[in-house]
């Protein structure tokens, strides 16, 4: 499973990198970015989903595989 942020939707609300700092970071403008290639393991999937469910802009996507 992989997580990604759509940069066209992200407005830098800052929820993802606060909730899951091991999965998300921020860039120089304060917009969210995924750390690495976004591959999720059994432990990180729940945190990624929590971040997704807190994003006001619906900018986080989780690709099932």
């Amino acid at each position: 499973m992989k997580v990604s942020i759509d940069p066209a939707l992200c407005q830098g609300q800052g929820r993802c990198f606060s909730i899951a700092p091991a999965i998300f970071d921020f860039d120089d403008l304060g917009n969210g970015v995924v750390i690495g290639d976004g591959t999720l393991n059994a432990e990180s999937v729940a945190l990624a989903r929590l971040a997704q469910s807190n994003c006001p802009e619906h900018a986080i996507f989780i690709e099932e595989s």
Partner: peptide, 23 residues
């Protein structure tokens, strides 16, 4: 509350620029 997609800082391109400071 674990799931909290609130919009206190607005939505879209005018999201409060000072939200990190306010928090």
């Amino acid at each position: 509350r674990a799931q909290n997609r609130h919009v206190a800082f607005g939505l879209g391109i005018h999201r409060c620029a000072g939200s990190n400071l306010a928090r």
